[in-house]
Design a protein around this nucleic acid. Structure first.
Lengths: 263, 263
DNA sequence: TTCAATTTCGTACGCTGTACGAAGATGTCA
DNA sequence: TGACATCTTCGTACAGCGTACGAAATTGAA
């Protein structure tokens, strides 16, 4: 009950990223701190946007403090008056990127609702694949992430799921969408590193593969691999995997609610 | 048809990691290269094992060339006579770690088969969480990964799925297991970074959160979050998520094969 | 006008992967 | 046996990373 909000022997345990995440919605917008000192030349939003654009264009490893600062003609250390460290910046990027998507109205049909949740996530992750690599602490607590989560829960609300099941269903759909994008990323990365297309790589390594695998037999893997290679000219096709897996998962969820309360 | 296997203007396009991966199963075991020169003081397997142990204990970032070399009293650069670069080592680690698991016999019941595939992957990733971060090019082509894949295909064989669907079903199960482990990792990482348990963090940030979220309302998220917080003392519980999601996915797959061939 | 607060940022440190080249060890061949 | 080719070992060095530190510049308030 002290007037002093922070005591030396009982330091503020609250996460510093939290206030940063919610800087636009806090009642007292932007704690004034003090009016003195030079104004910041660019806004934090601009910094985060630049970092997002950089990550979109060149991947997360290209998002270095020096590279971001250079975009504004600033020194690298200047960024540390905006953000405590790089990880905090990644959290802000994740939430801000999430805020760019518009959340469409949810259709009536339950199947279409669930599908929309997964496909929106899929599209977003394709636009910002680096989001998959931001595995930082609690980025989901930002304002845009929270809006998203609320919207996702609306999609699974009223189906007959328990509260816990609603959360878990959303998690399954989100995770599944992420995995598809990860597959795509893997292929793209492989093509970049090797400088060959998928088909070219298999052609270039066919001899080595058959020599090396001569002592082992993989009847099923061979059959399935051949089928896949004929269907599309690669080992896997993430787009079809999306359709198939999504259908199975939604089937399973809807079957579950149907059996739980048979009308 | 040249006797010379490699020509200067048509360099070997085959992936150098491939032969390294299959070094134990190749017909001509260990290309002799030439008998001259000192013997290597440790074997490649030992190096890879040490790297795996290091990753298990301290995480993938701790797996530096210098750290691995130090375990054997070697200089960092010495490792480059074993492996072309760090990424290649990660690929070897992934396959070798996969080889440590024993693949149990598959049960008769289709549901139990699919569950076993997912739970084996889950257990393995919990033992080696860094496997989730090894996103390198085609590590799945190693001998142990190939064995695993063949085994996984056996689990979904005979259910009535097409070849493509078999592959996709395995992918969905594997990806799902990975996502659960990722959730667990996220929690563990958060607790390590903040130095608080999940419950402590929520307590420490309760005031900030309610202040900051004052201007927004999340009726569903609040309800679901409260339910989750009461059920277990954290925001999520990966273990239950595993049971729930796995049941739904398997339901969906089995319903799919049932409808495809009634009887 | 003075001063405290704030932003800016040059320098430096420890860490990373790894290129380069020297030094040492070993087997083969004359 | 001596000479040599081939291999392993590894010290040094470099570029790039996040960021700690502290000085300089800038601004509003007193």
């Amino acid at each position: 009950m002290s007037v002093v909000p922070e005591q030396p022997d009982h330091p503020d345990q609250s996460d510093p990223s939290l206030r940063l995440l919610w800087r636009h919605r806090t009642a007292s917008p932007e704690e004034p701190k003090s009016k003195r000192g030079p104004k910041q030349k660019v806004s934090l939003d601009e910094v985060v946007d630049a970092a997002i654009d950089l990550a979109d264009a060149e991947g997360l490893p290209a998002v270095t403090m020096r590279a971001i600062a250079q975009r504004f003609g600033l020194g690298a250390m200047t960024l540390y008056s905006y953000v405590p460290n790089r990880d905090a910046l990644l959290v802000l990027m994740a939430d801000q990127a999430t805020g760019r998507a518009v959340l469409p109205e949810l259709p009536e049909d339950p199947r279409k609702r669930l599908e929309l949740v997964a496909r929106l996530q899929y599209d977003e992750l394709r636009a910002h694949p680096w989001l998959l690599e931001v595995q930082d602490v609690r980025p989901w607590l930002g304002p845009n992430m929270s809006d998203r989560y609320e919207w996702q829960l609306q999609a699974v609300d009223g189906l007959g799921l328990s509260d816990l099941e609603m959360d878990q269903t959303v998690a399954v759909l989100m995770g599944f969408a992420g995995n598809i994008v990860r597959s795509e990323q893997m292929l793209r990365r492989a093509e970049k590193v090797t400088g060959m297309t998928e088909a070219e790589w298999w052609a270039a390594n066919y001899d080595t593969l058959s020599e090396v695998m001569a002592g082992s037999h993989y009847p099923l893997a061979n059959r399935v691999g051949t089928a896949a290679g004929e269907a599309y000219q690669a080992a896997t096709d993430p787009a079809r995997e999306l359709d198939y897996g999504l259908a199975r998962i939604i089937d399973g969820v809807l079957a579950h609610v149907a059996e739980g309360s048979p009308d």
